[in-house]
Design a protein around this nucleic acid. Structure first.
Lengths: 334, 334
DNA sequence: TTGTACGCGTTATCAT
DNA sequence: ATGATAACGCGTACAA
């Protein structure tokens, strides 16, 4: 493992000159610069990140915290983030929260000394609770930048980049309403999560715009998981409800709902239309292919990284950025 | 940010003693150890990973290289690996190869100085080509440990942990044969990849064991992607072939095949049975739910990390570990 | 424009 | 059992 001194010796210059060639090339006269670069190539020298990190106090590393990396949406997000980070010269530390709040708090506590410049938090789990806010606040004071995907954090200066979840659910619902499907069930993640509350608001908005009464609305709790969604919809069906449309807040719930419908002999899309508020890579290949609200993941990943990198550099960043979305109509609703 | 000296001062000892309390507690007398621990808690001191890394030359970090993190199987793998690594005190650097050989080579080249102790390579793309082998060999000489999921690397001492792909495909095929389905198509990733060659061997083995002639076998190339698989199967159908079973080497291809069948009016499982050689989290919730060969991901992740950590520590590790698999029969084949 | 000297925070060696 | 000291490899004031 060649060090900077080895390069310096071979090039006949001092270590600081080598360092300059790497960090401010224009400050070194061309002849010497070339000698140094040759020596670097010769020895296949690459600076030790450890030494560099210690000296500079930065790490060229971002942490990506996701609720559950095994979920297809998060996988797609991780891919986009990793690629964008790579383009900016950053590595990505993957942290799976497994939907555990304890784990989130523990991570927020341990990350500052794990060597990351910034973190991206992408979980649907509610972060507006005291322990999380406290841990996040402390992380910020330690000089680690943070941004949030999918939710805003109250009372803390953490930029958020997210889709307008009210609009997303509204568009999904409106699409089914246009087809004169009724009743329509909103399948969310339970009343406690702030995220579902927004989506539910969008659902209600669309229904009211179509002239429906509050009493007619149907809300089911699928806990963001396929299993729970299946049970929840099955229960509804057993109770005699006959929905013609389902708006699922994420894809696993849409699949769970589809299975419940199938076991009750209901066909998609002829009997019931389904739309997911979240697009996933294989959605097109599910059967029937899944109508969903799509956001451009490459763009999303790039924006997340851009904002975070700007924040790390101490630049000004918008407190809240809305990511565009659009409806993709597929077989489950047509 | 408290440093080790701050702690030492507060506890009235030398920095060395603080370091010892952290690294070999039994070497410090209890009274002093307590004072130090109190001071640590008081200041919320956590050692700087950068300094520690520089001094020790190790990083408590593993890199996970995956072919495509957006694919559900890789997501599940990443989750398992991350969890296991966490249990052992390691962080995980996520590197998405995006199926690019150039990217793989570039990563193998840059990872040694990015601060990782070891790497896990989990890609179906063939690694037995000179540029990859050379880059990997060089990485090993730089003191970075490496292990491989899903394929062995010839002529290099890289331990592999994988399922017996011949047996996996054989079991999948045999399952369809038992139901007297014939002909059966093997849907793989093209003749060039070593992985598919193994799976294909298993398919042929099962067919021959059932008394089928080589001339009757059907092999299609789906390039491991849903789109290509759909085209490939559609072409077969247009050519007049009427398979009663499909063995897909991975899940996206199984979904692609299912869609091709559907557009030709063929029903799964009544007309055609499908089995995937790879189990994914939502497989149970696809429609019809997908029969597949399952490996315990938690176990797999743990084994990968265990072996890698052992290798990092300089311990003896088996050159090749077979991970058990079992058939999970679901709706697509019953 | 270049080199010298120092320090980032930790741990290993050595002496006590 | 503990403390002083040096060194890990790099970047940067400062001096030249």
């Amino acid at each position: 493992m060649a060090t900077i001194s080895d390069v310096a010796r071979l090039a006949g210059v001092s270590p600081s000159t080598v360092s300059r060639v790497l960090n401010q090339p224009e400050a070194v006269i061309e002849a010497k610069r070339d000698r140094v670069l040759t020596a670097i190539a010769e020895l296949d020298y690459r600076p030790s990140s450890a030494a560099r990190n210690l000296r500079r106090g930065s790490f060229d590393t971002l942490a990506l915290l996701v609720g559950d990396i095994a979920q297809p949406f998060h996988g797609a997000l991780a891919k986009a983030v990793q690629r964008a980070a790579d383009e900016q010269g950053y590595s990505v530390l993957l942290c799976d929260l497994d939907h555990s709040r304890e784990r989130l708090v523990a991570l927020l506590h341990s990350l500052p000394k794990r060597g990351v410049d910034g973190i991206i938090i992408a979980t649907a789990d509610n972060m507006n609770v005291p322990p999380v806010q406290a841990a996040l606040g402390e992380l910020l004071t330690q000089g680690v930048a943070a941004i949030c995907g999918s939710q805003s954090i109250r009372s803390l200066n953490v930029p958020a980049l997210l889709t307008d979840r009210v609009a997303v659910a509204r568009d999904a619902t409106a699409h089914l309403l246009e087809q004169r499907r009724w009743p329509i069930v909103f399948l969310g993640g339970g009343p406690s999560t702030a995220l579902t509350r927004e989506a539910r608001k969008g659902y209600e908005k669309a229904c009211r715009a179509a002239g429906r009464e509050s009493a007619e609305l149907l809300v089911a709790d699928g806990d963001y998981r396929a299993e729970a969604a299946e049970l929840s919809i099955a229960e509804l069906l057993r109770a005699g409800v006959r929905p013609q449309g389902i708006v699922a807040d994420n894809t696993p719930m849409a699949l769970g709902a589809a299975r419940a419908l199938a076991s009750h002999g209901l066909a998609v899309p002829s009997d019931v239309g389904i739309v997911s508020c979240e697009d996933v890579p294989l959605g097109e290949y599910m059967q029937p292919s899944l109508s969903s609200i799509r956001t451009d993941m490459d763009d999303y990943g790039r924006r997340l990284v851009d904002v975070l990198v700007t924040a790390i550099a101490g630049g000004e960043v918008p407190a809240r950025t809305l990511i565009p979305h659009k409806l993709v109509v597929r077989g489950s609703s047509s």
